[in-house]
């Protein structure tokens, strides 16, 4: 889904600049990676100088940060959080576990491929990635936003049935509305 650079008007460029310079993150910290978020945001690495700050609720957030392994039980909560966020929204998969299951690849209780369930814009690999790697991942996300290629939310809207099918494969007892506004 590559967007032609020339098709961006001046308004788009300004909008994408504002979007990339102001990222409110919703850190979903059930995995071990949650411990890397506080040093990233506080004095040592100071992500706020790059416009990254924490958001308190999914409504206000732009970036969903899935930190580490994702249990099948918490996948349901992640989907709810993701669908409550307001578009344009981005997802960063954080750590090996979101990429291929990591050291929990043969666990009965953790999913292996995050991007089969929600669209992921940027993966940061490592077990665990250091705050420098996290900031590098955010820089990559900023590049994608500026060039108009961070379109995971659009992909999710277009292929909702496919994603739902994968999600329902894991969440057997689906007691949610079709879309969690």
């Amino acid at each position: 889904m590559i967007n032609d650079k020339n098709s961006q008007g001046i308004v788009d460029i300004i909008a994408e600049y504002a979007r990339k310079q102001s990222l409110f993150i919703m850190a979903y910290g059930t995995g071990c990676g949650a411990i890397e978020i506080p040093p990233t945001l506080t004095s040592r690495y100071d992500a706020e100088r790059l416009g990254i700050r924490g958001a308190a609720t999914p409504r206000q957030a732009d970036v969903l940060l899935i930190t580490g392994y994702l249990a099948t039980k918490s996948l349901k909560r992640v989907i709810r959080v993701y669908e409550q966020m307001q578009a344009p929204k981005y997802v960063i998969g954080f750590g090996s576990c979101t990429i291929n299951g990591g050291m929990y690849w043969d666990s009965y209780n953790t999913i292996n491929l995050l991007d089969k369930y929600i669209p992921v814009d940027v993966y940061i690999n490592g077990c665990m990635p250091r705050p420098e790697a996290v900031i590098a991942g955010f820089e990559k996300l900023k590049e994608l936003i500026q060039s108009g290629n961070a379109l995971g939310w659009k992909k999710y809207e277009d292929n909702l049935e496919e994603y739902r099918e994968n999600q329902k494969k894991v969440i057997v007892n689906w007691q949610m509305p079709d879309y969690n506004w």
């Binding site: 300004i14 909008a15 600049y17 504002a18 310079q21 102001s22 416009g51 732009d62």
Partner: peptide, 8 residues
């Protein structure tokens, strides 16, 4: 920064 946040 607050202008950018607001614009976004």
């Amino acid at each position: 920064q607050n202008f950018l946040d607001n614009l976004k």
